[in-house]
């Protein structure tokens, strides 16, 4: 196996507050392989934004990686300084599309000027080379190349989103991190954006880490998925494995909470409560209070991520009752179109 592009190894991230340290991410492990599109799924409060901000030095000043390692191409980057991040990582290795990316273009600068500035700081490209390259990227993301000199306000919301993506791709990074890129958009616009992300995938070697609460877009657009709850990775694996054989109780319920337009009469699952806020060290499964199948052990320790079966490569779940979940799933009502561990339905 090749070396992962980005790897989180037992990462814990805490914020110092006047009530003591709040643990936003605890012992999280997962990795992204070169060229792969990977989805990180969780609801608000799951720690997904904190986790990805730690990669690019974007944590708030009271937050820090207190344990574990973040490895980029094998090198530890969690303790990089601003200078090192600027010099080695940002834009040319990892670029970031923030959640409210519509607000992240400078309104007073033409989009092309912003590209030239990034090029002058982070690369050796000349101005004309930079503009040439930027035009090509406009083409890829479905914008007309002769609009690179526009100001951001001349673009609609969806077009701004594309312009940001063009900037993110600009220095040919190995990884793009996109934090809820389509959450504020209407469905048609969302689908248009994923249509050109498909194109990015087909035409470049870039990997993508997609942060979202929407399991549907991950199932459609990514190869790998990691499910995060209360700062812990509950389950990770290929989208096919997790779709067919979700094993952690949270992934099982989350999958059943999503509407599927093909089955409008499905009775959707409700997951009561919300992810807890964790003060201090976390010594239990963070899903324990919401889990219908919790046992005493779940309160005593945080369960480790373990392989679910020998046949499914890289499919891991962090639950003390991994071996029983098949039986437990039987207690849930049957959902039209969802098979349990069997073949995919057509």
């Amino acid at each position: 196996m090749t070396e992962p592009l980005l790897e989180f190894r037992d990462v814990t991230i805490q914020y110092q507050t006047n009530r003591g340290p709040v643990t936003a991410v605890s012992g999280a492990s997962f990795s992204i392989e070169p060229g792969e599109f990977s989805g990180l799924v969780g609801e608000s409060g799951s720690g997904k934004s904190t986790l990805v901000k730690s990669v690019i030095g974007g944590l708030d000043s009271n937050g820090e990686v207190t344990a574990g390692k973040i490895l980029y191409k094998g090198e530890e980057i969690q303790d990089y300084t601003e200078e090192e991040l600027n010099e080695k990582i940002r834009w040319k290795e990892i670029s970031y599309i923030p959640q409210s990316s519509m607000n992240s273009l400078d309104p007073l600068q033409r989009v092309s000027e912003q590209a030239v500035e990034i090029a002058s700081v982070h690369s050796d490209l000349s101005k004309s080379e930079a503009l040439e390259r930027f035009k090509e990227l406009f083409e890829i993301v479905g914008l007309s190349p002769d609009r690179i000199d526009d100001y951001p306000h001349q673009f609609s919301g969806g077009m701004q989103q594309r312009a940001i993506t063009a900037l993110a791709l600009f220095l040919d990074p190995a990884l793009i991190i996109a934090d809820e890129p389509t959450t504020a958009l209407d469905v048609i616009m969302q689908d248009q954006i994923f249509k050109y992300l498909d194109r990015v995938k087909a035409n470049t070697d870039t990997s993508m880490l997609l942060i979202t609460h929407d399991i549907s877009v991950v199932f459609e657009s990514c190869e790998q998925i990691a499910v995060l709850h209360g700062g812990q990775v509950c389950e990770s694996g290929s989208v096919e494995d997790i779709y067919r054989n979700p094993t952690h109780p949270y992934s099982i319920l989350l999958q059943r909470a999503f509407p599927d337009i093909r089955y409008p009469d499905r009775k959707l699952e409700i997951i009561e409560g919300h992810p807890p806020e964790q003060l201090g060290e976390v010594t239990e499964c963070s899903f324990v209070e919401r889990c219908p199948w919790a046992v005493d052990a779940c309160y005593e320790n945080a369960p480790p991520l373990e392989n679910v079966s020998e046949s499914e490569q890289n499919h891991q779940s962090a639950c003390f009752r991994n071996d029983e979940t098949h039986a437990l799933k039987g207690e849930l009502t049957e959902l039209a179109g969802l098979t349990d561990g069997g073949e995919p339905n057509e």
Binding site: S216, F219, V239, D260, G337
Partner: peptide, 24 residues
């Protein structure tokens, strides 16, 4: 039809085509 076709389907095997509509 376009509105319905653009709704993501939570199924990696679904092969839903992306929207045919351009622009906004």
């Amino acid at each position: 039809q376009a509105l319905i076709d653009a709704i993501p389907i939570p199924d990696p095997f679904s092969d839903r085509p992306r929207t045919a509509l351009d622009g906004s």
